[in-house]
Structures are given as C-alpha cells and as structure tokens.
Design a protein around this nucleic acid. Structure first.
Lengths: 206, 206
DNA sequence: CGTTAACTGTACATACTGTCTACCTAAATA
DNA sequence: TATTTAGGTAGACAGTATGTACAGTTAACG
C-alpha cells in the first residue's frame, strides 16, 4: 500500500524518536499515581529528558501535545484490526460481542490516563473537539452494526434503529466501561455485563 | 480571655446571601457557553461582584468553592424527595422507573456545569473524593432497590445481585445520561431508554 | 562547505492560586 | 455609648503555569 520511504533520512528518524519519547513520558505522567503530579509541560519535558522548548517546537502547545497523545494511542493500537475482524463474523450478534470486547480491551489498556485526557477535553473545548472526532468513529461503527442487525433479524422502524445505535454508542463508551469496571473488576466480567446490556439494547436478550 | 458570646443574627443572613451569590456566579460561569471562559477564582469573584479575598475567606480555596457548589446542588434540589417517593411504590419495578426518572431530571437540570465539575474532580483527586462521596449515596440507593427486587421477584445468587447493582449504578450515572442525551435529545426519551436497559439489567425485560 | 532544521538555554510577559497584612464597616454585646 | 467581633476589602507577594522571542548549538543533508 504505502511505499516504504527508504530515503527518509536520519534526521526525521531522530525527530520521530524524540517525539515518541515525549509522548511516552506524557502518557506515563498521566498514568502516575492518582493524579498526584500535575500534568505540566515542564514535567513532561523533564520526564522525557528533553528541554521544555522541544515540546513547544514539536507539538506547538500543551493542547497539541495532548491531541498528539490521543491520536497516537488511537492509531497505534490493534483496535482497528479487531473491529475489522468483528465485522467479518457472519452473525451480526457475534460481531456485536466482538466489538464490545474490542472496546473493553481498548479502554482498559489506557484507562488511567484516558480518563484524564477526556477530563481535560471537557475543560478545554478545543481538545474536546479532537476527542469528539474519535468518538465519531465509534458512532459510525455502531451505526453500521445496527444496520446489519436490521438486515439480518428484521428491520425495525428507522427511529428505533437510531435509538439502538445511541444506546450501543453509550454502552461502548469509555465512561460506561470506566464506571462499571470500578476500582478492581476483571476485564472479561465487565465486557460480559456490557454485552448483556448491548443485546438488550438491540432487542436480543439471552 | 473570655470569648464573648456572639449570637449571629442578620450578619449570618447577609453572609449566607453573599455565599449564595458566589455559588450562583460559579454555577453560571461553569455553565457559560462551551467552557470558553476559564473557571478562575478571580472570574467567579468578578461575576459575583465581590472581592477575590471574599471567596478565600468564605470557601478557603478554589477546591472548597467547587465542593460547596457540588453540595449546594445535591442538597438543594428535590432529588431526595423524589427518591423517597419512588421507594413508596409497592412494586419495586415501579420504584426503579421512578428512580431512573428522578436521576434523569437531576442530571438534566445541571448538565452543562456538572460535566465540568466532574471533569475537575477527575483532575483533582481531593475534589474527586467529594464527588465520589455523592456517588456513594446513589450506590446505596440502587443496592437497596436490588435488595427489594430480590425479595419481591425471587432472590438470585448474591453475586448476581451485586452485578445488577453495579449495572444500575452505571446506568443511573451522570456519564450515561450525558452521553445518551447528546446535544439535543428530549429528557423523557433518554429516561425511557435508560429504563429499558435498567429493566434488562435486573432481568425484567418488557 | 554552506544550508537547514531539530534541539537547547535564557529571558520575559501573562495569568492563576494561595497567603499575609492591614484596614473598613456594621452588627452584636456589655 | 463603647467595645468587641466577624464579614468583606485592598494590595503586595511568592510560587507555578503557559506561551513567546531570540540567540545559540549541533548534526544531517545537498
């Protein structure tokens, strides 16, 4: 697909490396114990072992850093592959189960710091837009799924489909997972509970 | 030195009045369009028409102000009365419906600023404790309800009851309501959707 | 070798929190 | 009436944060 850029040069390579190091430091800092340490540009820079100016040079601003962090996580993970695999299932109810499980894994992997980035997104409207853009993808995923369910199991009224999509969107949200998981629930248990509700949301109970 | 007995009459009345004015200003500021204006102690003071020092004098700190704001909302509303009324219903399934409706109303009334206070609670662990304390009440509400449902409709295994309580806790959370309501859904519609899931959560489908 | 760009160091303007001190004023009390 | 008390105010201050400006260093690149 994309031709491998074999002439990219050591300069950009090094730049990408520091970029990655900074993002990792930012993630670690956000993950750190109970939010005791405030998330400041300076703290991230110190943790990454670079100058504060490097951050502004590379990300433009604190917000830019957070957006880049959010993007790196969303793109870097294996969520897209898992979602694609879920849609391969012949029975859309199986797809639903896989999708719920995929999001549960996804949220669980970055729980402590995703929670904070989202909180920052609520407080900073600009950052909030970036978060919302990611949510739009999930919204599309559930919309397509509901469509398939309608085709397979009999199509309900359009507004009922829309309602089902809204419910699935909410059930697969980070907030639902985070609240339900609480301080120490096991991942499969939580995913199972969400799936039960999700089946109810589309009118297919156990 | 014998501290003179100083019974407070009109003074506390006046103090309560400024207190209320400040809290109102804080609420309005948090509600203000899209969070454009940052929530600073100074901004609240200006909006309330008092000196910044008055806020520190009255609430101790920015966090104290936010906690007071949160408390004033929780205590001042009609939620407790509605919950009490809900528990009067003979059929616990009717109680469930009323409880869901009560929380939906409650969250809807302060949606724009509750969202921000909760975000601030995520970022500030101390403030988060205050928020969590309020959630503990709701947790107790759903626990008692699940207990009643078990008595009335046949008691499931203890861990199933615990799971049902967790689900109801999540479904009645602000985050669920806020996500589901989106930008422009009608309150009764959202409450109805949540109720459907809540009934599924306790094993009572339509 | 000269150019370019990542990276750095320092200084600076701005804004916010929180503390301190002194002060004014009106209510409450002796 | 005289005095105490507490709510509210004003200004200065320290500490920390973001973000900008600018000059400097270093190493890859043509």
């Amino acid at each position: 697909m994309s031709p491998r850029a074999y002439r990219l040069g050591r300069r950009t390579a090094a730049a990408q490396r520091t970029r990655a190091r900074v993002l990792r430091a930012a993630r670690d800092l956000l993950t750190a114990r109970a939010g005791a340490e405030p998330f400041s540009v300076d703290a991230v820079a110190r943790r990454a072992g670079v100058a504060r100016m490097t951050l502004y040079h590379q990300f433009g601003s604190r917000r830019g850093l957070l957006e880049a962090l959010f993007d790196s996580f969303a793109d870097g993970g294996e969520l897209p592959a898992r979602l694609a695999a879920a849609f391969q299932r012949p029975d859309p109810l199986d797809s639903l189960a896989d999708i719920v499980a995929a999001f549960a894994r996804f949220w669980d992997a970055g729980r402590p710091w995703i929670r904070r980035v989202r909180a920052l997104g609520v407080l900073d409207p600009e950052l909030g837009k970036a978060v919302e853009a990611r949510n739009a993808r999930r919204r599309e995923v559930v919309r397509v799924l509901v469509e398939r369910l309608g085709t397979r199991y009999g199509r309900p009224a359009p507004d009922e489909q829309a309602q089902a999509a809204e419910l699935l969107y909410t059930l697969t949200s980070f907030e639902t997972f985070d609240t339900l998981a609480g301080p120490g629930r096991k991942l499969p248990d939580v995913a199972g509970q969400v799936l039960r509700l999700a089946r109810a949301a589309v009118g297919r109970h156990d």
